[in-house]
Design a protein around this nucleic acid. Structure first.
Lengths: 162, 162
DNA sequence: CTATTTGCAAATAATTTGCAGTGCG
DNA sequence: CGCACTGCAAATTATTTGCAAATAG
């Protein structure tokens, strides 16, 4: 599975516009780093983004990836997640969305839901601050892990995300 | 603000029971490490837990804190969060709960909501896996940050969590 | 042109591991 | 008593920084 290229292009266009407005330069590396996240369903971490970009821009350096990612994050052009023990992961989906997280393997996927976008905030939250948006994380077992359970009953095998 | 001591004791009792059942030893350090998280509203990181425990158990070491936290996490006795750029934070609130996160300072507070516990899962999630629970993250501006904005119009000052 | 951004290499911070001794059950 | 747990110190990551050269606008 991949992010449809139409959607990738849409994200890229939005990114370019926002970059110009934000006064950041549109370098080759920066564009490719963004593209890498925008095209991925995996919410990749810095290292993974680096390896992906490296295939297209062999001279790119890991520190540029780190710098760029945090820079884009500060500008609000991407956001961060960290579903599990490992390092921070990045998300270029700026549309309102929610997450499905597999409690076995950590697989994290976006999904949209108008209903979840409009949740009524409980009274008690008033005491904490002024609520602006809600994001729901649905936890469960992904299809692949569920299938594995059926085959080799209950042995939680460590594995990579698809 | 602090977690009421009745609640801390309840969490401790639950922890002791679960530890015995899980076959892990109830050492002094382990108990104090758990107490530190159980008594905190802040979802502290490893370093912070370490400093807190150190006041009561001066000989405790940072690596024991790390090992213990991940051990407890693996046993399901605590959970993890990482609301911002900094390192992973831990949560000893095992009751069903949701989070309010301040987008300015990162303050994270638990709250309960029967309504949020029972959200109807959208159809589209079926394609991803078998949903089990939902956790809502409400994002907004905490009271303290909101107050600051009113005083010094719009300058986002960096600050510690309360 | 000139302020940003990059790549490199080196520094720092965060986290994990090996090992010998300690203590819970 | 034995095995899980601890503290120490050293190792390993992960991430950040300083600086000179490169480049977008």
């Amino acid at each position: 599975m991949k992010v449809p290229s139409v959607e990738v292009e849409r994200r890229l266009a939005q990114f370019k516009a926002a970059s110009r407005k934000g006064g950041v330069k549109l370098t080759h590396q920066r564009l490719e780093i963004f593209r890498e996240i925008a095209a991925s369903l995996e919410h990749p971490d810095a290292e993974t983004v680096f390896r992906g970009v490296q295939r297209r821009v062999p001279t790119v350096s890991l520190d540029t990836v780190y710098r760029t990612l945090w820079r884009l994050n500060d500008l609000g052009l991407i956001t961060t997640r960290c579903p599990r023990r490992e390092s921070v992961r990045f998300d270029a989906n700026l549309s309102r969305h929610h997450h499905f997280v597999c409690t076995r393997c950590g697989l994290t996927r976006d999904f949209e839901s108008g209903e979840f976008d409009e949740l009524r905030i409980p009274e008690s939250v008033r005491a904490l601050g002024h609520a602006e948006t809600t994001q729901v994380e649905v936890r469960g077992v992904c299809l692949r892990c569920a299938k594995e359970t059926k085959t080799k009953r209950g042995i939680a095998t460590k594995k990579e995300e698809p």
